[in-house]
Design a binder for these strands. Structure first.
Lengths: 221, 221
DNA sequence: TAGGATTTGTGCGTATGTATT
DNA sequence: TAATACATACGCACAAATCCT
C-alpha cells in the first residue's frame, strides 16, 4: 500500500487525518513495532510533504501515547507495560458495556448485513489463519461496534483506548495459539450477528464486554 | 496572572504542557468565551516564544475539541451544542461511577485533609458567591476526584470530558441562581468529605455520579 | 574526553486561503 | 469583480540536544 505521492487538492485537515490514520494503522499492525525509530525526513518524503505537516500528525500520535519524541534522539514507538494494559482493558470493557446502554443506534438492514459480512470474513479467516489479517478484521470490527452508539464522546474515548492497546494484543498473538484465537473471535462475531438480528444492541454490547474480559485474561496468562 | 516572560531552562515538553494548561484554563473560565478569535502572533509574544511552539499547544487544544482553526480565517474557541453536551454528561456520569470501582487509591490522611479543605473553601465561597471562584473550585475539586483512582486511562478520559463541558456549565451559571448552585455544590463537598472520612471511595464516586446527573438536569431546564 | 554525525525543536519568510471594501 | 488586508499553513535554514566513535 504505497502512499508515495501527495493527494492534489487535498485539504490540510484531510491530509492530517490521512497521515495520522496511516501511521496509527502501521503502529497497531506492528509494521512499526514498539521501539521502532520513525524519522521525520524520510516519512515526510514518502508522503510527499515537508516535515511541518508530518510533525502535526506525529504530535497527535504523541498526545495519544503511541509514540514519544525526544529532542536530539528521535521519535520512538512506545510500548505498553502489563500493568497499564490491565487498567486500560478494564476501562475498555466498561465502555463497551456502556455502548449498549447509552444512545444505541436504530438497527437498520444495513447494520445487519454488515454484521453478517463480518461473520463471513471470520469464517474465511478461520480457514486460513493469518495474524495480520486477523488484526485487520479485529480493527474493522471494532469500528463497527463503535458505530452502534450515537454517543460521539463514547466513540472517541473507546477509539483512543482501543488503539492504545491494539498492538499489545497483536504482539501476544504469537505467544498464543492463533487457531484458537481465531475460533474464539469467530464465535464473538456470530454471537454479535445473532444479537443484531434481534435488534438487541444491549446484548451485542454485553457480548463484546465479555470477550474483552476473557481476552485480557488470556493475555495475562 | 501575567505570563509575559518565558521560563529559562524550561524543557520543550514542560513548556508545551504549560501553554496548553494555561490556554485551556482561560477557555474554560470564559476568559476566552466561545467564538473568541485567538491570534497566534500576540499569544506567542505573550508567552515569549515564536509561533511554532504556540501552534503545538493550539494543535493539542484542537484535537481536544476546544478550538477550531481555519486556514485564512483564524483560530476560534468552539461552542458546544446542547445535544452533544447531554451525551458528554451521560458519559462523564458513568465514568465518575467507575472511579469508585476501578482501582480506587488507598485513602491516606492527606486525602482526608484535602477533602476537608475543599469543604472549607466551599463554605467561604457560600459566604461570598462569585462565578469565577466557583468555577475554579469546581475545577480543583474535579482534579481531586480524578486522583482517587489509580486507573490512568480513566483519569485521562475523564479529564478530556470534563474540560470539554466545563465552559458550558459556567456559561449557564448566570441563567441559574448562583447562591443555589453554590449551596448544592457545598453539599456535594460535605458528602464527599464524609465518604472519604469513612475510607469509602465507592460512596464518594456515587455521590459525584448523582451530582453530575442532577447538574445536567438543571442545565437542561 | 572531544568532536562529528544525526535527530528533533525553533524562528521566520513566504504561500495560500478568506473576508471585506 | 478586483484589490487589499489579515489570518493560518508551509518549507527551509539553523539551533540545540544526544549519541557514537
Amino acid at each position: 500500500m504505497p502512499v508515495s505521492e501527495g493527494n492534489p487538492g487535498e485539504d490540510a485537515r484531510a491530509r492530517l487525518q490521512r497521515l495520522h490514520d496511516i501511521l496509527r494503522s502501521r503502529i497497531c499492525l506492528l509494521d512499526y513495532p514498539p521501539g521502532t525509530r520513525l524519522s521525520e525526513e524520510p516519512l515526510a518524503a514518502e508522503f510527499g510533504t515537508s516535515r511541518t505537516p508530518l510533525r502535526r500528525a506525529l504530535a497527535r500520535l504523541e498526545d495519544e501515547g503511541l509514540i514519544q519524541t525526544q529532542h536530539g534522539v528521535g521519535t520512538i514507538v512506545t510500548d505498553v507495560d502489563l500493568a497499564e494494559m490491565g487498567r486500560t482493558y478494564e476501562l475498555r470493557r466498561e465502555l463497551a458495556g456502556l455502548a449498549g446502554r447509552l444512545s444505541p443506534v436504530a438497527v437498520t438492514p444495513d447494520i445487519i448485513a454488515r454484521a453478517h459480512r463480518f461473520v463471513a470474513r471470520g469464517r474465511a479467516l478461520a480457514r486460513t489463519p493469518d495474524p495480520r489479517e486477523f488484526a485487520r478484521l479485529n480493527m474493522d470490527f471494532f469500528h463497527f461496534g463503535a458505530a452502534l452508539t450515537e454517543n460521539e464522546a463514547l466513540r472517541e474515548a473507546s477509539e483512543r483506548l482501543y488503539y492504545r492497546t491494539a498492538r499489545i494484543w497483536l504482539k501476544s498473538i504469537s505467544r498464543l495459539d492463533l487457531g484458537d484465537e481465531v475460533r474464539i473471535f469467530l464465535t464473538e462475531l456470530e454471537q454479535t450477528a445473532a444479537a443484531v438480528d434481534g435488534h438487541d444492541l444491549l446484548a451485542a454490547a454485553l457480548i463484546r464486554q465479555a470477550h474483552i474480559s476473557m481476552c485480557e485474561a488470556r493475555l495475562r496468562a
